Amino acid sequence: MKAIWNGQVIAESDDTVVIENNHYFPADSIKKEFFSDSTTHTTCPWKGLASYYNVEVDGQTNADAAWFYPETSHAAKPIEGRVAFWKGVQVTEN
């Protein structure tokens, strides 16, 4: 799977976990040069507290376009530390 935004591949992995129609990529599969920490946090009733990244490509910023759960509830352990995308980030098969 590939995550693409603004014409740039920002993550790529053959090992994604799909939860609620979102592909969660391993943390080491994201291209860190395109990510910066966000101060945004949200809470999912069954997964836990989510943190966000801004995605930056060619001088453009897509705020909070990636999220992850640093620590999950027991039910969501398969996605702990993995990164998922939204806000126009295209996730496609290789």
Score class of each variant (00 low, 15 high):
Trp5Leu: 11
Arg82Leu: 11
Lys77Trp: 09
Trp67Leu: 05
Ala50Gly: 07
Glu80Gln: 15
Trp67Gly: 02
Lys31Asn: 14
Ala63Lys: 10
Tyr53Lys: 01
Tyr24Asp: 07
Ser36Leu: 07
Glu93Asn: 15
Cys44Ser: 08
Lys47Val: 08
Ala66Cys: 06
Ala63Val: 12
Ser29Leu: 07
Tyr24Glu: 10
Asp58His: 12
Asn21His: 13
Tyr69Gln: 04
Pro26Phe: 07
Arg82Ala: 03
Glu93Ser: 15
Ser29Met: 05
Ala50Pro: 01
Val17Cys: 07
Ala63Cys: 08
Ala84Gly: 01
Asn21Gly: 13
Tyr52Val: 05
Ala65Leu: 02
Ile19Cys: 03
Ala11Phe: 03
Tyr24His: 13
Val9Met: 01
Val57Trp: 01
Asn54Leu: 01
Thr61Gly: 05
Tyr53Asn: 05
Thr92Met: 12
Val55Glu: 08
Asp58Val: 05
Trp5Gln: 04
Val18Trp: 13
Phe34Trp: 09
Val91Glu: 11
Gly88Ala: 11
Val9Ile: 11
Pro26Asp: 02
Val17Thr: 09
Val91Arg: 05
Ala66Asn: 03
Ser36Gln: 06
Val83Met: 06
Ser36Gly: 09
Lys2Val: 15
Val18Tyr: 08
Ala27His: 06
Ile79Tyr: 05
Asp64Trp: 00
Val89Met: 04
Lys2Thr: 07
His74Lys: 15
Gln60His: 12
Ala3Ser: 00
Val55His: 00
Tyr52Asn: 04
Gln90Asp: 15
Ala50Gln: 02
Phe35Ile: 08
Asp64His: 01
Ser29Asp: 03
Arg82His: 14
Ala66Asp: 07
Asp15Cys: 08
Ile10Ser: 04
Asp15Ala: 12
Asn62Lys: 07
Val55Pro: 01
Thr92Ala: 15
Ile79Lys: 12
Gln60Thr: 12
Cys44Asn: 10
Ala76Arg: 01
Phe85Val: 00
Gln60Pro: 00
Ile30Tyr: 05
Gly48Ile: 04
Glu12Gln: 14
Lys31Ala: 08
Trp86Val: 04
Phe25Cys: 08
Val55Trp: 03
Lys2Asp: 14
Val18Thr: 14
Gly88Gln: 09
Pro70Ile: 08
Val91Lys: 08
Trp46Gln: 11
Trp67Asp: 07
Ala75Lys: 12
Ile10Phe: 04
Val89Phe: 01
Asp15His: 14
Phe68Asp: 03
Gly81Val: 04
Pro45Lys: 11
Tyr69Leu: 02
Ser13Asn: 09
Asn94Ala: 15
Glu12Thr: 06
Ser73Arg: 11
Thr40Asn: 14
Gly81Asp: 02
Asn6Trp: 11
Ser51Phe: 01
Ser51Lys: 10
Pro45Glu: 11
Pro70Cys: 10
Gln8Arg: 10
Cys44Lys: 03
Gly81Thr: 06
Ala84Ser: 11
Thr39Trp: 00
Pro70Ser: 10
Thr42Tyr: 02
Gly59Ile: 00
Glu93His: 11
His41Ser: 12
Thr61Ile: 13
Phe35Gly: 07
Phe68Pro: 03
Ala11Thr: 00
Leu49Pro: 02
Ala11Gly: 02
Thr39Met: 12
Lys2Gly: 10
Asp37Ile: 03
Ile19Asn: 06
Lys31Trp: 02
Asp28Tyr: 06
Ser13Met: 05
Ala11Trp: 04
Val55Ile: 15
Asn62Gln: 14
Ser29Trp: 00
Tyr52Gln: 00
Ile19Thr: 09
Tyr69His: 00
Ile19Ser: 09
Asp14Tyr: 10
Met1Ala: 14
Gln8Leu: 03
Val18Arg: 09
Thr43Pro: 01
Tyr24Ala: 05
